[in-house]
Nucleic acid binder design. Structure first.
Length: 269
DNA sequence: ATAGTCACCTGAGCGC
DNA sequence: TGCGCTCAGGTGACTA
């Protein structure tokens, strides 16, 4: 479900309810997420002092370290009143000292929750991540340098979290359309100029999507329960066989690295 | 190091 | 209604 814009939307939504609150308890009803959930009990009683996002991970900092939360494919977080009975896929609650709780709902259970003492960035899930796409480090020159001698499709290259984080299948498709680049071109064959364009379009796409509260395809909702509205602005994702919104030519669908891919054979070269 | 495939799960949608 | 199949927003593990 969530790519960077959806995680960022979630972060912004939950922060006011969590910041400076004490964790009263963790209620893990289903520990069988992507990795077994095992959180030391002394996290309880600690105050949440900072909330950030790294890649698609949400980091909830207390003094000694941070909880690291990932939403997987189907996860979302809601702020609920502590006494609302959990539904079938509401796997865990983090109860707070003002009576509200952060509740993780995740039907497919690809999400995860870890605890990491300082330094948090040393956690094995975070250690080898690439640059943030909305940071100054993400430039056309960076992508150009990293892509040399790489024969994999540029779409896979952009979705490789060792290179750049946060770009999933929707936004890879969208950004490549806007940049006019075919998804299957070998990453190592694109020019510096084309990577500059790709970077600009990725930034633009992610920023716009964040402004719309992310993309809701079926079940994503922000922490307030509202869907994201970027789905209305999708230019290619999920539109194979339909006319290109720019030129009217029929969009083509194919598989690139096991993921559904859509492009315009006229606008993308 | 890089590239490709598999696996982990549940639910929705579709054809029959 | 039900069955079986395919697909889905992610990503680590494994293989060559």
């Amino acid at each position: 479900m969530p790519e960077l814009p959806e995680v960022e939307t979630t972060l912004r939504g939950i922060t006011p309810s969590l910041l400076n609150r004490r964790i009263v308890s963790l209620d893990v009803r289903e520990p069988r997420l992507r990795w077994p959930v095992q959180i030391p009990s002394d996290v309880c009683g600690k105050r949440i002092v900072r909330l950030t996002r790294r890649a698609k991970y949400l980091l909830l900092y207390v003094d000694a370290g941070a909880l690291i939360l990932h939403l997987g494919m189907s996860g979302h977080l809601r702020i609920v009143s502590g006494n609302v009975p959990p539904g079938k896929h509401d796997h865990l609650d983090i109860l707070l000292d003002h009576g509200l709780a952060l509740r993780l709902t995740d039907p497919r259970r690809f999400g995860s929750l870890h605890w990491q003492p300082h330094p948090v960035a040393d956690h094995w899930l975070l250690r080898n991540l690439g640059v943030e796409p909305l940071s100054d480090a993400f430039t056309g020159d960076y992508l150009f340098a990293r892509s040399r001698r790489r024969r994999a499709a540029v779409k896979n290259f952009l979705m490789d979290a060792h290179v750049v984080v946060g770009i999933g299948n929707i936004y890879a498709n969208e950004a490549l359309f806007k940049a006019g680049v075919r998804p299957r071109i070998a990453a190592g064959r694109l020019s510096r100029a084309r990577y500059r364009e790709i970077v600009a379009r990725i930034r633009e796409t992610l920023t716009t999507a964040i402004g719309q509260g992310g993309t809701t395809l079926r079940d994503f909702v922000g922490s307030d329960g509202r869907p994201g509205y970027f789905a209305n602005e999708l230019l290619v994702y999920g539109r194979q066989g339909k006319p290109c919104r720019r030129c009217g030519v029929m969009l083509k669908g194919l598989r690139v690295g096991q993921r559904s891919t859509v492009y315009c054979p006229n606008c993308q070269r």
